[in-house]
Design a protein around this nucleic acid. Structure first.
Lengths: 241, 241
DNA sequence: CGGACACTTCGGCGCTCACCGAACGATGGC
DNA sequence: GCCATCGTTCGGTGAGCGCCGAAGTGTCCG
């Protein structure tokens, strides 16, 4: 750099580079992907999963928290961290979606293939459902005229009534959009995110329509869930497998 | 890193970090922000604006092109580069929006304040209109029932008819959504992006409703444009200043 | 109160990478 | 054909950063 005599720079440039720098490390990126389900982890847990020393993980977490990407909560001798908000989750999702298309990402080992298959079937994406499950729900909503995708991405009035009838309350007070498209990185198609997507996911888990598999982001549909999805949205059970 | 014995990693992690690494350099971030208007620049021009040696800029451009963020077009001894596609533009926009809220970004010099003011009034954001102008158009469309924002973000049937009546054709064949919300980093509010936003911006420039100011992303509304916006959307001229 | 545990701080190592200047094609104008 | 211009390639340099292990701090439990 020469001096200050250059053309007036965008003030947002350095900030953008600093933010991207937080995501530019493989270990930190792994932390964020691990936390993408919206749940909290401890520092040691993240260190083990990433294969780095606890001291290294501690430094990374410090940077991510300072950068506003993670929120922390100290409980005794534990340090719990989670994504700061839905905006951060969306950002990580967008980046992941941008990178996925190039490499079709074929799995290398059988274990990874099995894990990837479960994830492809159904998983949570921060606070909403993704994978083939998420796509199936989104398609069903769209096919029944409850969600409009041809001119953007929004619930219809019939969609609002459907949520009410299903007993899934929608909080419309916040600034967060009711419906938003989230690009699925395994299906390469948009699925329902936003307040409505979060409410649907929460209700599906609360009502036992879906359960989490292990400690991963993967979820699977229960028999109860198959009945509910068939009854409420006309989804055939075969579409969920 | 120890070896391959660690917990099966997300295959997308390294790719995400690599992509973020491209954005993590201040000079490269500046390039992308400069190109955010969708137009092409030469390598030397970018080098001068960023205040780095031509050789340095050349290396950066090589990385950005290899990473799929920029598309290049060689013409004689010139190397023109531009953003690869709308997805890249959206990504940069999202990152910029994420970073802006933290720092209110008060300008430092009078020149910057003037330039920032013009940008805040109206500008292009890749291929659609942003700034107060973009917000005013989006609000007017919403207020007239042409765009629905309360349950997501989508044009209404009346909106489709409005575009047709205004003589602005909408290409609905591509995979790109017709309407999408793009968060404005000066106004902190969503404005119309996607195919419809691009068509509206293009038409506004073609019809002389707006003209570009200098070589920047900034645009201003012409008297013709004030009349057109008043007639078609009921926007008062004072809202555009 | 002492030991196990979770995390943090610190010093140091090694690698990566942005940067420059100089030399080298390649193109286009005179 | 000659020269200016644009871009690229190449060595070299310096700063930054991710990583570790060792030592230190705070917390919980027996």
């Amino acid at each position: 750099m020469l001096d200050g005599m250059t053309t007036p720079r965008d003030p947002v440039g350095p900030g953008l580079a600093a933010l991207a720098g937080l995501l530019a490390d493989e270990t930190r990126a792994g932390f964020l992907l691990t936390l993408l389900d919206g749940r909290a982890s401890t520092a040691g847990e993240l260190a083990r999963q990433a294969g780095v020393a606890p001291s290294t993980a501690s430094e990374h977490l410090g940077k991510l928290v300072a950068g506003g990407l993670l929120a922390e909560e100290r409980q005794g001798r534990h340090r719990y961290v989670r994504l700061a908000d839905a905006g951060v989750a969306q950002l990580v999702e967008d980046l992941a979606a941008q990178v996925a298309p190039g490499a079709a990402e074929r799995p290398r080992t059988l274990r990874e293939a099995a894990a990837g298959s479960a994830m492809a079937r159904g998983r949570t994406c921060y606070d909403h459902l993704a994978g083939r499950l998420g796509i199936a729900l989104t398609d069903a909503l769209t096919g029944r005229g409850l969600l409009r995708q041809d001119t953007g991405f929004a619930l219809t009035d019939a969609g609002l009534r459907w949520f009410e009838a299903a007993g899934i309350p929608l909080d419309r007070t916040g600034r967060r959009p009711l419906a938003r498209a989230c690009l699925d990185w395994t299906e390469r198609r948009p699925h329902l995110a936003g307040t409505a997507g979060a409410a649907l996911c929460r209700h599906a888990l609360d009502a036992g329509w879906c359960v989490r598999i292990g400690s991963d982001r993967a979820v699977k549909v229960t028999p109860d869930g198959e009945r509910a999805f068939a009854e409420l949205l006309g989804i055939e059970a075969t579409a969920l497998r």
